[in-house]
């Protein structure tokens, strides 16, 4: 068998392992889905009336506005879970066992990433389902839905590889749960919950140039028809960049350890 076939075969084995683990430990998945749903409901029903008024409408306008931000928040929250999962895994002897076996080294990490991506896309589907139930009214065509799904998948892949790298760098699972924390706040410090032009100058500058804003703007544009401009290109570049850098970082860390 060639190296590539072996790598694919080992990766498939590791993905199966990871999916079994996720099924066996559902509380983590549930928590990752429930957290963004709670935030969604909180923002729509508690703050939504007032915030919607600021956007020139009401609660219904705000539901539409906030969903992309919630989706990114879901990805960021899930990153915490992935980092903890990886850090826990690294402290277990099983990883040392994998390292002493003649298998594709990257497959261990690939298993984590593919497993988490599947987990997160399912989570996002639930969030969108709840959003639709409480008044989210996208006007996207199937192609736009596909494009939005594609971008969100790319985002999830990027964030997951970053989480894997952070999880591996963390000395303990507890530390790993803190490492991706800043990601959870990025939607707040961007166009996730309120438009950036309502923010003070310094914060606005950060909000406009941080990676999550163009991603949220693109998703918003695709699902609701707001202007996208060059956000799509910037969003793709950010995701690809983060994914590549994180992959290399994670792989380097794994090989070196």
């Amino acid at each position: 068998m060639s190296t590539l076939t072996l790598a694919l075969r080992d990766s498939a084995t590791m993905v199966r392992r990871q999916l079994k683990r996720l099924l066996r430990y559902p509380s983590m998945t549930v928590q990752l889905v429930v957290t963004p749903v709670i935030i969604l409901v909180l923002f729509v029903y508690v703050f939504g009336g007032t915030l919607g008024a600021g956007l020139g409408g009401g609660r219904d306008v705000y539901v539409d506005y906030v969903v992309p931000g919630i989706l990114l928040m879901a990805a960021a929250t899930a990153a915490t879970g992935t980092a903890v999962m990886v850090a826990t895994d690294m402290t277990e002897g099983i990883i040392a066992r994998f390292r002493t076996m003649r298998i594709s080294r990257a497959s261990v990490l690939t298993g984590h990433v593919v497993g988490s991506v599947i987990q997160q896309l399912l989570g996002m589907a639930v969030v969108i389902g709840v959003a639709l139930a409480i008044g989210f009214r996208p006007n996207a065509t199937p192609v736009e839905w596909l494009a939005a799904t594609g971008l969100l998948t790319l985002l999830v892949v990027a964030v997951t590889w970053l989480a894997v790298a952070l999880g591996m760098k963390s000395p303990t699972p507890e530390a790993a749960s803190n490492a991706p924390m800043p990601l959870v706040f990025l939607p707040f410090l961007g166009s996730g919950f309120v438009p950036t032009d309502s923010m003070p100058a310094v914060l606005r500058w950060f909000a406009e140039y941080q990676p999550f804003t163009p991603i949220m703007e693109t998703v918003r544009g695709l699902l609701l028809g707001t202007p996208i401009g060059n956000s799509a290109a910037i969003a793709t570049a950010w995701c690809t960049g983060i994914a590549t850098a994180s992959y290399l970082w994670a792989k380097h860390t794994f090989d070196k350890a």
């Binding site: 066996r24 040392a96 002493t100």
Partner: peptide, 20 residues
């Protein structure tokens, strides 16, 4: 890699996947 093909290791800390 050839060495890895020959050996088996049972470490001090159990190297089993506890969720499986």
């Amino acid at each position: 890699d050839d060495v890895r093909g020959m050996i088996g290791v049972t470490g001090q800390y159990s190297a089993v996947d506890k969720l499986l």
